[in-house]
Amino acid sequence: MQKKMHVTATINGEVQEFLCEPRQSLLECLRDILHLTGTKEGCNDGNCGSCTVLMDGRLVTSCLVLGPEASGAEIVTVEGLARGRELHPLQKAFLEQAALQCGVCTPGFLVAAKALLDREPQPSEQRIRWWLANNLCRCTGYDKIVRAVQQAAAELAATQGGMNRL
C-alpha cells in the first residue's frame, strides 16, 4: 500500500482537505473520497470528456490529473454550477432544450460550456462545436446541446452582470 498524501484544495468555493494515494486521479479523489459523484468516468484516458472539471479556471479531464496535483488549486465541478437553489442558466437551458437523454455526459458538457461562456459570452455555432468537441455525447447528436448553449449565452447577455457570474 502506498503512503497517502495530504491534499488541500478549494472545491466549489470551499476549502477541502483529503488524503489520497499518489496514484489516484483527481477524478477518483472527487468521486470516491469527496463523494462528488456528479463528475463521471467514461474512458479514464481523457477522450470522452465526462470527467471535465475546471482547475484554476482551465478545463481539464480530471481522469488525467493526479489527486496530489490539485494541491492548492481551485476546482469547479458540476455540483458547483448552481447558486444555492438557483440553477445556472446553462443548467436551465439544458432542461428547456431537452439537451440531455441519458445524462451521463451532461456534467462534463455543462462544465465545458461554462468555461466557454466565461471566456466568450457570444460564441458562434461553429465556435461552440469546436469548444465542445472534447466531450462525447452518444444520445443527442449534439443538436440540442448546441442550442442550449446558444440559449444560455443569450440569457446571460440579457441579464445585467451575466458575464461576471462565477
Binding site: E79, L87, L95, L100, G103, V104, T106
Partner: peptide, 11 residues
C-alpha cells in the same frame, strides 16, 4: 432533469 444537470442523479 434537475438531478441530471446538478450531478445528483445516481448512476
Amino acid at each position: 432533469g434537475v438531478d441530471k444537470v446538478t450531478g445528483r442523479a445516481l448512476y
